[in-house]
């Protein structure tokens, strides 16, 4: 792997007195799709929150490009082009699709119109519904909006937290095709998923998180064939 875009080492984080991440090392190279797999409560979203500044790491370092970002605010991290599309979408339900997208481009206002055109090309459904309140979109449309909103911020690295959650099998197919196509344009993606099979198909490398530590890591092909995957993932 070339000089990593994101590199995390010895990361510890948690809530109150409870430690959730207990020493995590991870790297994402430029243009790579890296999957993080793990069962419920393993600490995947906590890892994402620590990367994007929502949760202050207790210990360890997070570097994005040449910069140490483990003490930076979420705003500063967004401005670096590290964009987190969170679990549960967290779109603005009281605002229109278009307003949601425009807020996604809050820190890239000068190129907002171009970016919006690009997002609409990627998600024609959103273009059709740009005047509709986001809260009234279907679950699948809301997920597209959440990703579209993230793309408006001109990510260098896009973190997707369980984007396939709650989508029908057909939409899941579409979603993974979409992930491939935005990655093909050069964007690095950190993909947090429970959908193991499909994630390992799109990712080049993967990590398996269990109880706040990585128990497996390697190329997607190796992980797929690893006898421990089932055990780690299902907690058997």
């Amino acid at each position: 792997m070339a000089e990593p875009l994101l590199s995390i080492s010895g990361l510890h984080a948690g809530y109150g007195g409870t430690e959730v991440l207990r020493g995590v090392d991870l790297a994402v190279g430029p243009g790579e799709i890296v999957a993080v797999l793990g069962s419920n409560g393993a600490g995947k979203s906590t890892l994402n929150r620590a990367i994007s500044g929502l949760v202050r790491p207790w210990r360890g370092s997070i570097r994005f490009g040449a910069a140490a970002i483990e003490r930076e605010s979420p705003v500063a991290i967004v401005m670096r082009g590290l964009i987190h599309v969170p679990e549960g979408r967290r779109i603005f339900p009281n605002m229109t699709v278009r307003e949601n997208l425009d807020l996604g481009g809050y820190r890239a206002r000068t190129r907002r119109d171009d970016n919006r055109t690009r997002v609409f090309a990627l998600f024609p459904k959103l273009a059709e519904r740009q005047g509709q309140n986001a809260g009234t979109l279907s679950g699948g449309e809301q997920q597209m909006l959440a990703i579209g909103r993230g793309l408006m911020a001109e990510p260098k690295l896009l973190i997707l937290d369980e984007p396939s959650l709650g989508l029908s099998p057909l939409l899941v197919e579409e979603l993974f095709a979409l992930i491939r196509s935005i990655n093909a344009a050069g964007m690095a993606i950190l993909l947090v998923e429970q959908n193991v099979v499909q994630s390992l198909e799109v990712a080049q490398r993967a990590y398996v998180l269990e109880n706040g530590v990585f128990v497996l890591e390697g190329s997607a092909a190796d992980i797929r064939n690893d006898p421990n995957l089932k055990r780690a993932y299902l907690g058997l």
Binding site: S52, L54, S73, P74, P86, M95, L103, Y106, R149, G150
Partner: peptide, 23 residues
């Protein structure tokens, strides 16, 4: 205004707003 929209966004969905780079 962008500020007004940011205010409405924070009112309903603070974390979502933070992740858009809204202070």
């Amino acid at each position: 205004t962008d500020t007004g929209k940011a205010i409405r966004a924070v009112a309903k969905e603070k974390v979502g707003a933070e992740l858009c780079g809204i202070d």
